[in-house]
């Protein structure tokens, strides 16, 4: 996250930290963010996993304010299922259908348990997004500037505004790379944004008084760069897909 502020995971209790295991015995390294959408399922971005698509490669934590260290109240999970959107694709500039689902379970076969630092996030109503200009929160352990190579140890969050598809499709923005299955969001002053390493994390908007997972951090040109907003997978366009894999009986909250 460029700009913004450091925060405690209690402010974003649905935030999941996803690590990729090392083959050589070194500790797992931070890979991407995610969001707990039901007790046993985390939503993230397909592009995080597409080059190493085996579920055994990953470990997921909930309740972490500080990455790669022990956080009181955290929960650690293996990935029981790793599902990519079948129409995921890498385009010239960005991605399409950039969404993945991870079924999580502890070593004793448990799903997530609610606490001050672990909570699910609501899914948006079908095709019901917050209006253009809404303030939405982003969260992650991604880089604080671009180009950078260090990821902060502590969780950050910031606020960006939803911008219209018309604005985002302008030639000097992203032109035809933008379709209606993504959302664009940016800071009016181009001072804060998601960045490399925030992929898969949440774009949380308030819809009818409920905090809702409206977007999944997907791509952007640079970070906090003028006329280059952040591009997010539009979750309200994938509700049927999500439900087809998770179903309603698993505590999804629409």
């Amino acid at each position: 996250i460029v700009g913004g502020e450091f925060t405690n995971v209690e402010n974003q209790p649905w935030f999941a930290t996803i690590y990729q295991k090392n083959s050589g015995g070194a500790p797992p390294f931070f890979k991407c963010g995610g969001s707990l959408i039901s007790p046993c399922w985390v939503a993230s971005a397909a592009h995080c996993f597409i080059h190493h698509p085996k579920k055994e490669n990953y470990v997921v934590y909930l309740g972490q304010s500080k990455r790669n260290s022990y956080n009181p109240g955290e929960m650690k999970f293996e990935v029981e299922q790793l599902i990519f959107h079948e129409d995921f694709s890498e385009e010239s500039l960005g991605y399409r259908n950039d969404i993945a689902l991870l079924k999580i379970r502890t070593s004793t076969g448990q799903c997530a348990q609610p606490s001050r630092s672990i909570q699910t996030i609501c899914l948006p109503p079908r095709f019901g997004d917050a209006p253009v200009g809404s303030d939405c929160e982003i969260t992650g352990f991604g880089q604080e500037s671009h180009p950078d190579y260090l990821f902060p140890m502590n969780l950050k969050m910031s606020v960006v505004k939803l911008i219209s598809h018309e604005e985002c499709k302008q030639p000097h923005y992203y032109g035809s790379e933008i379709n209606y299955k993504v959302l664009c969001a940016a800071d009016p002053e181009w001072k804060t944004d998601a960045c490399h390493g925030d992929s898969g994390g949440p774009l949380i908007c308030n819809i009818d008084g409920r905090l809702t997972l409206s977007g999944i951090v997907s791509w952007g040109e640079g970070c906090a760069k003028k006329n280059k907003p952040g591009v997010y997978t539009r979750v309200s366009s994938f509700l049927r897909w999500i439900q087809s894999h998770i179903g309603e009986e698993n505590g999804l909250a629409f």
């Binding site: 209690e10 001050r116 909570q119 109503p125 999804l252 629409f254």
Partner: peptide, 22 residues
């Protein structure tokens, strides 16, 4: 049909644990 925000197993989607104001 929007299910209630209180879904199974004690989760309340989108709710943050507000700090008690001492």
């Amino acid at each position: 049909k929007p299910s209630s925000a209180v879904d199974q197993q004690g989760f309340q989607c989108g709710q943050k644990a507000l700090r008690p104001r001492f």
